[in-house]
């Protein structure tokens, strides 16, 4: 029976590796990456996958082999009567320690890059937060939708309202564009957004951009990344926020600067045309 059971245990590394080998072929794998920092994260993922994969295969195969080899059935040779080995203990403490320290240090830059640096200070400045840098937009999560607020640049505002408009930007407080769930972003530009929550915790998750950040009521958290490819992607809420958590779905559209401006202008015109819409969107 020992043989049989060793083979059952051998299935673990065999099927385990097969699972990870075949999944990409069926497109059940990392979603398409559209951000500048994404490849770094994916690279780290692959790096750890290989590393742990090797550890996994070695340990599981060793287990299989010992089970196969030292089956008591039909054997009567005495066991290796040993209480351990100092050398071995030291080896298998030092080697993993070195590996783990290496991973820890290896990934620090990627973490700093996506969560700690000051976006204005360039990719190397790991200082402070993005507090004083003007954000492209403000994202407010609430049960169960994403409220987006874009400051509208002066020229676009003028274009949208026409030259002979009565509207005086200094008096009228509605100077921003309010949209729900439709996140539009320009491609190849560093995007900074301020993440807030109006009620409970949510999490701003763009799988394709490898971005995730919880939105916390009472906090304003800056999020930044640079999208490198146009297209339409999912915006997911990744923190339980109530019964409707599953349907808190947004749509990310990455487009060229011109298209983005056009969209901004169009939506802003719509908003001004229906003042009602605007005030409901604002008076949350």
């Amino acid at each position: 029976m020992g043989r049989f059971w060793s083979l059952v245990f051998l299935l673990v590394p065999v099927l385990g590796v097969a699972c990870f080998a075949f999944a990409p072929m069926y497109k059940i794998w990392l979603p398409k990456d559209i951000s500048q920092h994404g490849p770094v994260i994916d690279h780290l993922f692959y790096f750890i996958l290989w590393l742990t994969g090797v550890v996994f295969v070695i340990t599981e195969v060793a287990l299989f082999w010992f089970m196969w080899r030292y089956d008591s059935h039909g054997r009567s040779n005495p066991v290796k009567f040993t209480h351990g080995s100092h050398t071995l203990e030291i080896v298998w403490t030092i080697v993993p320690a070195a590996v783990l320290l290496f991973i820890a240090i290896y990934q620090m830059n990627a973490w700093a890059e996506s969560k700690m640096r000051n976006p204005a200070a360039g990719p190397d400045g790991i200082l402070g937060t993005a507090d004083d840098i003007p954000a492209l937009l403000e994202v407010t999560a609430r049960q169960f939708e994403w409220r987006l607020r874009y400051p509208v640049p002066e020229e676009i505002r003028k274009q949208a309202l026409g030259k002979d408009s009565q509207w005086d930007s200094t008096k009228d407080p509605i100077k921003d564009l309010f949209v729900v769930n439709e996140l539009h972003l320009p491609v190849n530009e560093e995007i900074i957004l301020d993440l807030k929550s109006a009620d409970v915790l949510h999490s701003f998750f763009l799988p394709n951009a490898r971005v995730k950040q919880d939105a916390v009521p009472g906090m304003k958290i800056p999020v930044w990344f640079r999208a490198t490819d146009t297209g339409s992607y999912d915006l997911v809420c990744a923190e339980l926020c109530g019964w409707g958590h599953y349907k808190m779905k947004g749509r990310l559209t990455v487009e060229s600067r011109e298209d983005f401006n056009k969209w901004l202008e169009e939506r802003f015109r719509e908003q001004m045309a229906t003042q009602d819409t605007a005030s409901t969107a604002k008076g949350e």
Partner: peptide, 8 residues
């Protein structure tokens, strides 16, 4: 497990 006399 190594070098033992395993009873399954």
């Amino acid at each position: 497990v190594w070098g033992g006399n395993i009873r399954f």
